[in-house]
Each structure stands twice: as C-alpha cells, then as structure tokens.
C-alpha cells in the first residue's frame, strides 16, 4: 500500500461479535488506521459522527433504535456528513433495497456472511480507489 493518511473508522452493528470480526479484519489487513469506534445502533453512530472526525462508516442495517437505512438517510441529508463514505455490511438480500441504498449514496455493499478478504478489498476500493475486485 502506498503512503496513505491514517483513517478513523466507525463500525455500527448491534452484534458485538460482528463488530469484533470486522475490527479484527481491518487491523489484520494492515490499513493505516488512526482509530476505530464502535456504535450499537444508528442513533449512537450519528452522535459519534457529529462529534468526531470519521472517514469511513461501516454499518449493518437491522438494528434497534435506529436502523442502518435511517442512518444512511440522515447522514446523506446533513450537509456536514453527506460526503462521508459509507459501506453497508448486512444480511439483507433484497435487490430492491440494496439498489435503494446505493441510490441514497452508499459507497459499497457487502452481504453477510462475508469473507475477510471481501471486506478488505471493499475498504481498499472505497477509501483508496484500488478496484482490484468489484464486490
């Protein structure tokens, strides 16, 4: 990987297991990481995004309090956060819903169950435009 500025990532999922798996994948991948924050629903994530400088949000869809779809819509509607890169990692399989999320401005989608290398490639593509494999 070329010289890249370290990034701050926000992981959003109500499953602590999934948060741990994705964080482990990111750390093992060797990306330049400044910090990784966790949120267990969209509401917590929205608060974090508004108080920290976040470069990438990786969010699930099905969560209590505020879903991932609501989070995406809220972030994209806010002038301060509308350019934020968002990856959705979810078990959602409805093509209609996935297309809707893409139309709302997410940078990438990955369906669960995912392979660690798929997460790695998608982050690489979204953050640094290295389109080695389209996910």
């Amino acid at each position: 990987m070329n010289k890249q500025l370290p990034i701050t990532v926000l992981l959003v999922d109500d499953s602590q297991i999934t948060l741990s798996i994705i964080e482990k994948t990111i750390r093992i991948a060797g990306f330049p990481i400044k910090a990784i924050f966790h949120a267990s629903n969209g509401h917590e994530a929205y608060d974090i995004v508004n108080t920290r400088k976040i470069d990438l949000v990786i969010s699930d869809i099905i969560m209590p309090v505020m879903t991932g779809v609501e989070l995406v819509n809220k972030l994209k509607a806010n002038g301060y956060t509308k350019k934020l890169r968002i990856i959705v990692i979810s078990s959602e399989g409805s093509k209609t819903k996935i297309e809707e999320l893409k139309a709302n401005g997410i940078s990438g989608f990955l369906r669960k169950p995912f392979k660690p290398e798929d997460v790695k490639e998608l982050i690489k593509r979204v953050m640094w435009g290295q389109d080695e494999r389209r996910v």
Binding site: I17, S91, G93, S94, P113
Partner: peptide, 16 residues
C-alpha cells in the same frame, strides 16, 4: 450474540 448473528444471516438467506 453469536447465535443471533448466525440466525440473522440464515433468516435473510432463507427468505431470498
């Protein structure tokens, strides 16, 4: 938590 996550994935994959 692990069981819920496995079910979550099984459920949506069954539906599609």
């Amino acid at each position: 938590d692990a069981l819920k996550e496995v079910l979550n994935i099984i459920c949506s994959n069954i539906i599609t």
